[in-house]
Amino acid sequence: TFELKGKVGKVVKIAEDHYLVEVEGDKWIAYSDEKLSLGDRVMVVDVDGLKLKVKRIP
């Protein structure tokens, strides 16, 4: 999972307290300090167990 840091993915689902992002064909639970929208491109900035911390990228 640490090899996911720096990888780019996209938001595929928005849940009440987390996001579902697809990175390299796999779906992961993710969270972010900013509000994300469906389809946003994101970069993995940290890995916390099986959850990814992501940030939006242009």
Rank of each mutant, 00 (worst) to 15 (best):
T1Y: 14
T1I: 15
T1K: 15
T1E: 09
T1L: 05
F2L: 15
F2Q: 13
F2K: 15
F2G: 15
F2T: 11
F2W: 08
F2D: 13
E3P: 14
E3V: 02
E3W: 10
E3K: 01
L4T: 03
L4W: 02
L4Y: 01
L4E: 02
L4G: 03
L4S: 02
K5E: 14
G6L: 01
G6H: 01
G6D: 04
G6V: 00
K7V: 01
K7N: 02
K7S: 03
K7M: 03
K7T: 02
K7E: 03
K7P: 00
K7R: 06
V8E: 13
V8Y: 05
V8Q: 13
V8M: 07
V8P: 10
V8R: 05
V8W: 05
G9K: 00
G9C: 03
G9T: 04
G9I: 01
G9S: 03
K10H: 10
K10P: 13
K10Y: 12
K10M: 12
V11L: 14
V11Y: 01
V12C: 03
V12F: 13
V12A: 14
V12W: 07
K13G: 06
K13F: 13
K13V: 09
K13L: 05
K13M: 08
K13T: 10
I14K: 09
I14E: 12
I14Q: 13
I14F: 06
I14P: 08
I14W: 13
A15N: 11
A15T: 10
A15H: 10
A15D: 08
A15S: 06
A15K: 09
A15C: 05
E16Y: 09
E16K: 09
E16V: 11
E16N: 10
E16I: 07
D17P: 07
D17N: 08
D17R: 14
H18A: 08
H18C: 03
H18Y: 07
H18S: 14
H18I: 07
H18Q: 09
H18T: 10
H18D: 11
Y19V: 06
Y19T: 11
Y19G: 11
Y19N: 12
Y19E: 06
L20V: 09
L20N: 13
V21R: 00
V21S: 02
V21N: 00
E22P: 01
E22Q: 14
E22D: 09
E22A: 08
E22T: 05
E22K: 05
V23F: 02
V23C: 04
V23M: 06
V23P: 00
V23S: 01
V23E: 01
V23A: 04
E24P: 02
E24W: 02
E24L: 08
E24S: 07
E24M: 05
E24Y: 02
E24F: 05
G25K: 08
G25P: 13
G25R: 15
G25H: 09
D26Q: 15
D26N: 15
D26A: 15
D26E: 12
K27I: 06
K27W: 10
K27Q: 08
W28D: 01
W28A: 02
W28P: 01
W28R: 05
W28G: 02
W28C: 02
I29K: 13
I29S: 12
I29C: 03
I29Q: 08
I29Y: 11
A30V: 05
A30K: 00
A30M: 07
A30H: 00
A30R: 00
Y31S: 10
Y31E: 13
Y31H: 05
Y31R: 09
Y31T: 05
S32H: 12
S32R: 14
S32C: 04
S32V: 12
S32Q: 14
D33P: 08
D33H: 13
D33S: 05
D33A: 05
D33G: 09
D33T: 12
E34R: 07
K35W: 03
K35H: 05
K35E: 11
K35T: 07
K35N: 15
L36D: 00
L36W: 03
L36S: 03
L36A: 06
S37Y: 09
S37C: 04
S37N: 12
S37A: 11
L38N: 04
L38H: 12
L38A: 11
L38C: 07
G39W: 07
G39D: 13
D40K: 04
D40M: 08
R41K: 09
R41H: 15
R41A: 04
R41E: 13
R41N: 13
V42G: 02
V42S: 02
V42L: 06
V42H: 01
V42Q: 00
V42M: 12
M43G: 04
M43S: 07
M43F: 09
V44M: 02
V44F: 15
V44D: 00
V44I: 04
V45F: 11
V45D: 13
V45Q: 13
V45I: 09
V45G: 05
V45R: 03
D46Q: 06
D46Y: 04
D46F: 03
D46R: 02
V47L: 10
V47D: 02
V47C: 03
V47F: 14
V47G: 05
D48V: 04
D48R: 05
D48Y: 10
D48L: 10
D48M: 06
D48G: 04
G49D: 07
G49H: 13
G49I: 03
G49P: 11
G49C: 06
G49Y: 11
G49E: 11
G49N: 15
G49T: 12
L50W: 13
L50M: 13
L50E: 08
L50N: 08
L50K: 07
L50Y: 13
K51F: 10
L52P: 03
L52K: 01
L52Q: 01
L52A: 03
L52G: 01
L52F: 03
L52I: 04
K53H: 15
K53Y: 13
K53R: 12
K53F: 09
K53G: 10
K53V: 05
K53E: 13
V54C: 03
V54N: 00
V54H: 00
V54E: 00
V54M: 02
K55N: 10
K55Y: 07
K55M: 15
K55L: 15
R56A: 06
R56T: 14
R56K: 07
R56H: 09
I57K: 06
I57A: 04
P58G: 15
P58N: 08
P58V: 13
